[in-house]
Amino acid sequence: MNNLLETKEVSKYFGDFQALDAVSIQVPKHSIFGLLGPNGAGKTTLIRIINQITMPDTGLVLLDGEPLQPNDVKYIGYLPEERGLYKSMKVGEQALYLAQLKGLSYSEAKKRLNYWFDKLEIGHWWDKKIEELSKGMAQKIQFVVTVMHQPKLLIFDEPFSGFDPINANLIKDEILQLRDEGATVIFSTHRMESVEELCDHIALIHESKKILDGKLIDIKRTYKTNTFEVGLVSDDNMALKQSIEAKFKVTPADFKSIHDDLKLNIALDANGTPNDLLTFLTAQSQVLHFKELIPNASDIFIQTIQNN
């Protein structure tokens, strides 16, 4: 069994509104799985179903190949987008309470909390009330209570909102480390640069339907257009451009360089190879810059949604 979590044809209605339409996703073990989609697409509903906060109308959720059980909450750590803590409760007490709700014993919870509080250097907050902490500090506590019961599945909904870049980086490193230690991470976000950086699998949900999923690399391969970005220097750039346009589909490119070069995106047809293009170009000019254009997650996101 390679998938830690699978949803099979999960559908959910709220009254007449269909929030999810037969959504199936497979989350491989030890992966970081990006759950993407515009606002209101149904991501949060799907996440809530995985957390057994809402029940699906039809469909099935499998954890480790077994249908999800109420007791499975202890294997899942969930950091919701709408998150918070009891404001007037002390940090330590609150963390202990939440850990015990996840099924840890008091002493075990205390041990793990001490570990995490030391690791993030927040031990001296133990007796403070949440309302005395800044938002970023509270977010760190929130992160600790999400991961401290060592769940095999971690679900983060917009985990970096509210963090400054330093703490965001810290949390990102923690997430990567948790993955390396064996956890599987589902990651829901709008921030495409963090998808690019972290995710190895993605699923795109749009208007209640899953419209795209798979390994990020595979998706990029299918979305690549065999287009190359080039920077060329010759005696007569205009003539050069005309001669290229006669043979290939060309659009202007925009990248930084120190030369006064001709910048172009050149699209090859399906059979064209980069070497053919290079041969053609080197015959007429100096090639200073040659790079395959690979679509980034943001491009894929926008393009897929516009096509639907």
């Binding site: 919701p80 709408e82 939440l98 209570v145």
Partner: peptide, 17 residues
């Protein structure tokens, strides 16, 4: 209402019914 306004509710009900 306090649990709703402090937004802790979703954290809690991912652990308890």
């Amino acid at each position: 209402i306090e649990e709703k306004t402090s937004r802790i509710i979703e954290v809690i009900i991912s652990s308890v019914k």
